[in-house]
Design a protein around this nucleic acid. Sequence first.
DNA 1: GTACTCCTTCAAGTAACTTGAGGTTCAAGG
DNA 2: CCTTGAACCTCAAGTTACTTGAAGGAGTAC
Lengths: 147, 147
Amino acid sequence: MNLHVRVFTIGALAKATGVSTPTIRYYEEIGLLPPAPRTAGGQRTYDDDDLGRLTFIKQCRDFGFSIDQVRVLLELSISTNRDCVETRDIAQLHLDEVRQKLAELRLLERRLESFVTRCNVACAGGPGQDCVIFKDLAAPAKGGCCG
Amino acid sequence: MNLHVRVFTIGALAKATGVSTPTIRYYEEIGLLPPAPRTAGGQRTYDDDDLGRLTFIKQCRDFGFSIDQVRVLLELSISTNRDCVETRDIAQLHLDEVRQKLAELRLLERRLESFVTRCNVACAGGPGQDCVIFKDLAAPAKGGCCG
DNA sequence: GTACTCCTTCAAGTAACTTGAGGTTCAAGG
DNA sequence: CCTTGAACCTCAAGTTACTTGAAGGAGTAC
């Protein structure tokens, strides 16, 4: 009666999900994955349920959710009595964080751009001691070199 | 002859630079700052040189340079015979990385957006087991739920 | 049976700090 | 002079999410 029950080694599961084998063991260790059944020789075995669960985890991680957030999402996804709206709220929160980070990075990009430009324009390419950029950097922050 | 020689405690230096006191001690430990002279009682003392150096470090860290990159930049800033163009190259490299990260985050933002939207539209707000989003997440990556 | 790949555990390393415990020094007020 | 309280000290461990390495066992193909 074991029709259609695929069994994977840890390596096969790794290949199927794109999660490395040490990471899979790590996920088991921290309880993200249930302890895998073992062969007589002690090697871990996985099935399609594990494939689904690990795929879920991988997707969430690719979304940038922290391990703790993934833990909550996993619980929610299995839960029969908790509202799935919680999921949306976690995602929304994370989206806000991503946008915050985006804004910071955009600012950083502009600052670095003008840093590089100024390195090219202002600096004769001489020894470090004469470089105006270094003098800027050692002075209190005022945004002198950048937007 | 000690006119204009300001001396700081670690706390004052922390306040002046925006770097926390444990972090200052950490920077000393890893050799980013020279070992600070001590009072008779063993407390660290700093002067304006240290202020300049730590400000430089802080600015670089705010730019997102790694500790190792800061180490190189510090060396370059003191060096008398190394070309300051190296600095520009490090900054350029870092700028490239920032732009890469920006592109990734923008993609992530769009994916999360459509995730949240779909949570709102597709999901009745019932228990997790029935949520279509979870089914998407547990299925192999195909971008089914997002752009 | 032997060669080879894949698997096992356990410990330590990574980045860049932060946090905590337990104790000492300094400056000010009485 | 003494006490109080903030700020300082060291050392160790915790954080995040894994990765890397050593030393050895399991599974499979020829």
